[in-house]
Design a protein around this nucleic acid. Structure first.
Lengths: 221, 221
DNA sequence: TACAGTAGTGTATGAACATACAGTATCACT
DNA sequence: AGTGATACTGTATGTTCATACACTACTGTA
């Protein structure tokens, strides 16, 4: 969360004080009176800035100011999942280096239970309602059944990292097929031959199953 | 302290609920809307009676209602959201009767913060990746901007309940348009004339905004 | 029977409020 | 030298809000 300026902090504290003392948020005019402003627009500007930084929410009715910061310390709970972007070479998925963010969410919300989250990039799964930017819950599991949606970890030689992509998984013998859920022809099916991959690990697309798709969260904006 | 009448208790509870859910006390008009009064003076009378009995204090400015009784423990704790199906006649949204389930999730995960969840039924929002069975986070807010996705509470005369549906909201003057996000022709646009709705409440589709769409959770299976 | 309390409708009005637009000035950063 | 963020003044407007007045109707009670 972005830092407030000194003035904005003073104003936020005044809102907290007013709320605590009177039970009602202040109006723009109240703020002007407190700080000696002669224009309600001074207060309006500060409120918008504080709201833009995420400390309060402005509702459009009188005294519509809602605090989004708790006065007391937030609860610590164990319902957190790491958000994993791509994976550094040689590192386990959950290595701290790979964690972009920690999201407070109950792993049991998903089925099967999620071990980590991944932010979807692109529209390859559009047809099953998984969109760019969505956070998907992934259940760590190194194999999958035919037709299941998996998080595929695909090695990229240029970056030396593994990128995670959602794909629908099919295997017949040693041939693996990773399909997108988007009829647009640009979303091609990836085909991998396990024998080839083993024999010539420099050459073919290196691939493994990072886990099973177990649900998603969408946070607009 | 003198006892409150049943009606006065209901109103006091509504004030407590509004404060808890939105952080701001209700206006007289809010109370009228909640209880179906047609005159703000009905609310005013109740407030004066409740104040005279010492349960609240009235300050003479907008929303100047201060609770003088302990606010009982919140129904939902910080990291839980109620899952609301449809709404029993005359009940506030958050009434226990309407809660199907409680889901452990951080309301701040969504933007704007979610006040309750709703399970999507049908495919009317398929084109924006909202599918049947998804749980959507709803931010309690009685109005919306054009083009926003809202949870519309539409009264069903047969069941006597309000059903919640996601729609894209447009308003021009007194005409409201509720659009689906599915090009299939079976998903028609609902049009409502506010004037008609007021004049002939038996006839026209009764409708209100239950809140803003604020994100979703998908739990497969 | 009368009276006080409760529960409303209906109308009206002025003050309180949020908020938009048009400016000015300072400061840090590029 | 130019741009964006901050921190205001000043004015204006339309809506929201509290609240007063007048009136109906039901209920328990002294």
């Amino acid at each position: 969360m972005k830092n407030l300026t000194d003035r904005q902090t003073e104003i936020l504290e005044f809102i907290q004080r007013t709320l605590r003392d009177s039970g009602v948020p202040p109006t723009r005019v109240d703020i002007c009176a407190e700080f000696g402003f002669s224009s309600p627009n001074a207060a309006e500007g500060h409120l918008k800035a504080i709201a833009a930084k995420g400390y309060i929410e402005l509702m459009r009715h009188s005294r519509g100011i809602r605090l989004l910061v708790e006065q007391d310390a937030p609860l610590t709970n164990q319902y957190e999942l790491p958000l994993i972007g791509n994976i550094a070479a040689g590192q386990p998925i959950m290595a701290e280096e790979n964690i972009e963010e920690t999201v407070r969410i109950d792993p049991e919300l998903f089925h099967p239970r999620a071990d980590f989250l991944h932010r979807v990039s692109g529209h390859s799964m559009k047809e099953v309602g998984i969109l760019d930017g969505d956070l998907v819950g992934i259940h760590y599991q190194p194999d999958a059944d035919n037709g299941q949606i998996i998080a595929a970890a695909i090695y990229d030689r240029r970056s030396g990292r593994e990128g995670i992509t959602l794909k629908r998984y099919f295997r017949r013998g040693n041939k693996i097929r990773l399909e997108s859920e988007n009829s647009d022809p640009e979303y091609t099916t990836i085909e991998i031959d396990l024998v080839q991959q083993d024999e010539d690990s420099q050459e073919a697309a290196q691939f493994r199953i990072a886990g099973l798709y177990a649900g998603l969260i969408r946070r607009p904006r």
